[in-house]
Simulated assay, not measured.
Amino acid sequence: MAGGGVIGVGGGDGRKPYPGNLTPYVTITCIVAAMGGLIFGYDIGISGGVTTMTPFLQKFFRKVWEKKEADKSTNQYCQYDSQTLTMFTSSLYLAALLSSLVASTVTRRLGRKLSMLFGGLLFFAGALINGFAKAVWMLIVGRMLLGFGVGFANQVI
């Protein structure tokens, strides 16, 4: 059975009181650390919604859209049966996995600030490529850069 107790500040047990305070620097550091998880979660939510949008499917995954339009049943199982669409979705997660393995070495050598900057630049480049994408390969490359950025940010944070 677990138990607990109250510890007095600088009590008679010989320990000194903890001098730490909640400073603006500590608060901002906590917010930045929380943003690493937000980036990953935000991307998961966005990509899930985008892959069901009709204009997106018409432009980049025409066969998936045609199959979806032809099938008027209410069965949602394997409605998007496309290896290319699967590659688009999973490329971010695969890249994040690979970059998180490398990011620890890079962080150890360059430091956290430069590693976070590098991850942010990768994320920015991926978002830029995805924003201006004209073909599926651009979407996949952009998602991979986003994945590298997310992997670096999560490892560093």
Rank of each mutant, 00 (worst) to 15 (best):
T51S: 06
V102I: 13
L128F: 12
F60H: 12
N21H: 11
K113F: 11
V6T: 06
Y42K: 12
V32T: 14
E69I: 11
P19C: 08
G4Y: 04
L98H: 03
I44G: 08
W137S: 04
P17E: 08
S73N: 13
F61S: 13
L38Y: 07
L146A: 07
L122N: 01
T52S: 14
K63A: 12
Y77G: 00
A34E: 06
L121H: 10
V150D: 01
G131H: 04
M53S: 13
R109Y: 02
N75P: 01
A153M: 07
G48V: 00
L110E: 05
S104N: 10
A34T: 05
G120D: 00
M87S: 14
G10L: 08
T84M: 15
K67P: 05
L117A: 14
L85I: 09
G119D: 12
L122P: 00
G36M: 04
A70D: 04
A2P: 02
F118V: 00
P17T: 06
T84D: 10
L57T: 04
N21Y: 09
R15H: 10
F124V: 00
L122V: 02
T23Y: 02
I129E: 14
Q155L: 13
S73M: 06
Y77Q: 11
Y77H: 11
P55W: 07
K68N: 02
S100F: 05
A34C: 11
A125E: 03
L57K: 08
G41T: 02
I44D: 11
M138K: 06
D71Q: 04
T107D: 12
V9T: 11
A133W: 00
L98R: 04
K16E: 11
R143G: 04
L38Q: 02
G3W: 05
F124D: 00
W137C: 00
W137H: 06
F152P: 06
T54R: 11
G20D: 13
L97N: 03
Q58G: 00
Q155Y: 09
G37R: 09
Q76M: 13
L101Q: 05
I28K: 10
Y93P: 03
R112L: 11
V32C: 12
G12R: 12
A135M: 05
P19F: 03
G149C: 07
F118Q: 03
G142F: 00
P19Q: 07
V50G: 15
K72W: 09
V136L: 15
F118A: 13
I157V: 13
G111R: 05
G5E: 05
L94N: 06
G41M: 04
C78W: 10
V50D: 14
A2H: 05
G5V: 09
T107R: 14
G3M: 09
M144S: 09
S91P: 13
I157E: 07
G36P: 01
F148E: 01
M1V: 10
D43V: 01
L145P: 01
S115M: 12
K134G: 15
K67S: 15
D43C: 01
F123E: 09
T52R: 04
Q76I: 11
K134E: 15
N21S: 13
G45K: 14
V32E: 15
